[in-house]
């Protein structure tokens, strides 16, 4: 490599490694949020680059809604084991049992309640920083969020009271009980993530690739049939070739029709796609113009 061939992926990678090392050095007790999804898969490779041959200076943490696709959970466990790093899983079912989360129905989306289980885990382990895989291109609330996003003792994001972030001089100071969410891939787009997965030859859960699946067309999306999602009256199940652009709560994460069977084909499709990642796949982000903003204020990452 020479200076001339320093690409945008090299620049984004170097920035993310720098951010992770700042967290490790300045935060007393950080954790890395790992869900088994593509963005956090990229985070793990960046952590390997940042800290090998040493161990990660933080555990991996997954807030499990128990509504996850089984392929993703299997992948999560496999990848953590392969890395030999500690994985902490905190389940929303436990929060429900303890009465911390009250659902209207068993099958409703659990995404909004992840914040409660996350905040409980942060309190349990006294984490002062959580590294997450959120990107600014995902959503307009994210576009205005800092790389080091400060949260008060209730886990709340205050968009109008953010610390100025200049150069790469990050302010990591917190008072006891407060917490910072850190987003090393803030400046990456969906396409950057796939190009990096290709370049690094990273393994991803199988449901990212095209496969036959039973779905129910509902509103503007294709809902995957599962024990959580069954057809309503007048709805029909269709079996079509799909892939997932994001992997989240099974009750509200929709696949897109696609025959992209390899990372290269996904990149080609991503470069051509005309619909945003969340617009295509997340029913819960479409409920209002400000749904993500509201959830973040409640402690969502």
């Amino acid at each position: 490599m020479s200076h001339r061939s320093f690409t945008h992926l090299d620049a984004l990678e170097s920035e993310a490694i720098h951010i992770m090392r700042e967290v490790a050095a300045e935060c007393a007790n950080p954790a890395l949020l790992f869900s088994g999804g593509k963005d956090s898969i990229v985070l793990l490779r960046l952590a390997e680059k940042a800290f090998r041959p040493g161990r990660f200076p933080f555990p991996l943490l997954h807030i499990d809604t128990e509504h996850n696709f089984p392929e993703v959970i299997a992948f999560r466990d496999h990848r953590a084991k392969e890395l030999g790093e500690r994985l902490i899983v905190r389940s929303m079912d436990d929060s429900i049992k303890k009465g911390r989360v009250v659902l209207r129905s068993e099958n409703q989306s659990r995404n909004p309640f992840q914040s409660i289980t996350l905040l409980d885990a942060i309190a349990e382990f006294s984490f002062d920083a959580c590294i997450g895989g959120a990107r600014r291109d995902e959503e307009k609330a994210r576009a205005k969020e800092r790389i080091f996003s400060f949260r008060d003792e209730f886990g709340q994001w205050d968009p109008k009271n953010q610390r100025p972030e200049l150069w790469s001089l990050y302010n990591t100071k917190t008072h006891s009980g407060e917490n910072i969410r850190v987003f090393p891939i803030s400046n990456w787009t969906e396409l950057d993530v796939w190009e990096y997965i290709a370049r690094e030859n990273l393994e991803v859960p199988s449901i990212y690739f095209a496969h036959w699946r039973e779905v129910i067309p509902r509103d503007s999306g294709l809902l995957p049939v599962s024990h959580l999602v069954q057809p309503r009256d007048n709805e029909k199940i269709e079996k079509i070739m799909v892939r997932f652009r994001t992997v989240g709560d099974m009750s509200c994460t929709c696949p897109v029709a696609s025959d992209a069977a390899s990372v290269g084909e996904i990149i080609a499709e991503t470069a051509m796609t005309r619909i945003t990642e969340r617009g295509a796949t997340r029913m819960d982000d479409q409920t209002s113009d400000a749904s993500m903003e509201l959830r973040k204020k409640e402690g969502y990452f």
Binding site: H8, R136, D137, K140, A141, A143, K144, P159, K160, Q162, P164, E165, S186, N187, T189, L191, D192, D289, A290, E293, L294
Partner: peptide, 29 residues
């Protein structure tokens, strides 16, 4: 480049938003 609900409600603007686009030659922030 319109703002967040918090900005519209309170008539304030948040200091920096980041936008991304790319051409075959360069990626822009």
């Amino acid at each position: 480049t319109d703002g967040l609900q918090a900005e519209r409600e309170q008539g304030i603007t948040i200091d920096v938003a980041y936008r991304y686009f790319a051409t075959p030659k360069r990626k822009f922030i």
